[in-house]
Write a protein that binds this DNA or RNA. Structure first.
Length: 126
DNA sequence: TCGATGACGTATC
DNA sequence: AGATACGCCATCG
């Protein structure tokens, strides 16, 4: 699998995260069969355009913290806003880190679930 | 080719 | 929760 395919897989899985829930970079990597590529999941999300439909805000670190994009950037703040917009509680730690309670909002399925409205296989269930 | 880097993860303290 | 150390791996300079 090359970089483009990897990105596509990441986007496919991220699109399946239900509104109001979050998962981790590592779990997305696990779901696409590359458990050691958590860092690259973040890389893939970085390439998304600002107007994307992909719910990138629902991917945070396994510790529940919203990854800082570095001092002087507002990515983390925008992610917090997007999450609170879908009713996910975001708490701010002493170091200014934004954190989400994974026990309440975590989404960690063992397999990649079926897409709600993706009909590429045209399987018609009753 | 090599070393540094990064929207990371796990283990420890 | 926060800080540190170490593992991991594609990209970059």
């Amino acid at each position: 699998m090359d970089a483009a395919e990897f990105h596509a897989e990441v986007y496919r899985v991220v699109s399946l995260i239900p509104p109001g829930m979050v998962t981790s970079y590592g779990h997305v990597a696990k779901l696409i069969g590359m458990p050691h590529h958590s860092r690259h999941v973040g890389q893939a999300l970085k390439f998304l355009p600002a107007n994307t439909q992909i719910p990138w805000q629902r991917v945070i670190s396994s510790s529940g913290a919203i990854s800082s994009r570095g001092p002087g950037t507002d990515g983390a703040a925008r992610q917090r806003a997007a999450l609170e917009d879908e009713n996910v509680e975001v708490e701010e730690g002493r170091t200014g880190e934004f954190r989400v309670d994974l026990r309440r909002y975590g989404w960690f399925p063992n397999e990649i679930p079926d897409a709600p409205n993706n009909d590429e296989d045209a399987v018609h269930e009753e």
